[in-house]
Design a protein around this nucleic acid. Structure first.
Lengths: 225, 225
DNA sequence: GGCGTTGCTGAAGATCGGCTGAAGAGCAGG
DNA sequence: CCTGCTCTTCAGCCGATCTTCAGCAACGCC
């Protein structure tokens, strides 16, 4: 579960980062509106925790711009309950949930989990690309009607590519999505797993669904190769 | 107890979500007819709280389509008492109960509990997976016509897997469903019981209905293995 | 064609996740 | 109180899987 915390008060941001990391989330932080927006658009987070009062660009604007750009990431707004900001407005700009400051950490975690569940169930369950079928719910993959056994990493990569079928996806993004990739993670690891993946879903069928985009990463052919 | 709240007014939906969560329900929300219908069909809810006035597809239609699809989920309709919508009509389309807006939260909870009890007791729910039959009502299980005696935990796990037959189910979810799993609950407990379960419903019959999904959890084969 | 860069892949060792037998606690019935 | 059943915890085991490394291949630019 990848979470982006956008919060200008650094002590709070840090506390959240540590706490959420301990709860098993992978956490990035941003401390102002513009950088928060940029990070949220660049990386595939599951949920964004968004403070409303932010330097540069307030939370409402970040939220609506994110939605305007077509993102369906989960957004949880943090509202100070001084009355100036309205929770309803948060939801109107496209937030999925809100929490009034001060809030309990336990509640935040529960809400994040609930939100992640909802987001997850919002995603399509199966992706069909020609005769290649990726079933995210069952965690299975079939090619030409034949079941293909994949390891967890292989499936996670395929799943991620399938969600962006036809788009080029960078190795960095794959690392982030599949590995909670620290900055020191090695792209070669992705290559090794992609290689194994191809050997299972492409080579035996004389197909090429997983295409290399040189200099960038990979793309899953929308027609199954 | 899994509840789906379908309500387009977001503030009310959120209030219900929070309130019901606090009452111990597991709550999902949807904000329009089509997505509500989709969620209700995709997931195994115990009860659906269904507003009548909904964008896209009104509550009556959602209700009757759910019933048409064979769902026997409990349905509680929320009717605005402006007279335009008729309570009797709600019941005609297959709802189990209704409540006029504005309503008291306490009453809603009481009705939900009552409904859940009725649903639970009427539960004709039998899942047939090849020659494996799971009878949730009778709390019995038969394999190839032979009755199999299961302990309560074993049955609860099997039952939960059966409700999501074909899907990968995480150990965490099983812990939540069967154990009211606190964050400190141990996944190994699940493993032990699954092991016992297999020894009763799979091994003696040379089958493998309960499949391990490495890194995730388990899946009950839709064809009984 | 030459060259630097980028990607592929086989092998090997390290690591992880899951399975299972056993032991002890808890509980209900006799 | 004893007995039998179930549940949980623990620890060891095992195989599957992951990562690293190194050499080779492919690509694109000059």
């Amino acid at each position: 579960m990848r979470v982006l915390v956008v919060e200008d008060e650094r002590r709070l941001a840090l506390a959240l980062q540590h706490g959420l990391t301990a709860e098993g989330f992978t956490v990035d932080t941003a401390h102002d509106g513009p950088s928060g927006l940029a990070k949220a658009m660049d990386h595939a987070y599951d949920v964004v925790v968004l403070d409303i009062m932010l330097p540069g660009l307030n939370g409402y604007r970040v939220c609506s711009r994110l939605r305007a750009s077509g993102s369906d990431v989960g957004i949880l707004m943090l509202t100070a309950k001084d009355g100036e900001w309205d929770e309803a407005e948060a939801l109107d700009t496209g937030a999925d949930d809100y929490l009034s400051k001060p809030f309990s950490f336990v509640v935040l975690v529960a809400r994040l989990r609930a939100l992640a569940r909802r987001i997850g169930s919002r995603a399509p369950r199966r992706t069909v690309l020609g005769d290649l079928v990726v079933d995210s719910a069952a965690r299975t993959c079939t090619r030409a009607g034949t079941g293909v056994a994949l390891t967890p990493r292989e499936f996670a990569i395929l799943d991620h590519l399938a969600r962006r079928a036809g788009e080029a996806v960078s190795k960095r993004e794959i690392l982030d999505a599949v590995w909670d990739g620290g900055p020191d993670s090695d792209p070669n690891t992705v290559e090794v797993h992609v290689s194994a993946l191809r050997r299972k879903i492409d080579t035996p069928f004389g197909r090429a669904a997983v295409q290399t985009v040189r200099g960038t990463g990979y793309r899953l052919a929308a027609d199954g190769g």
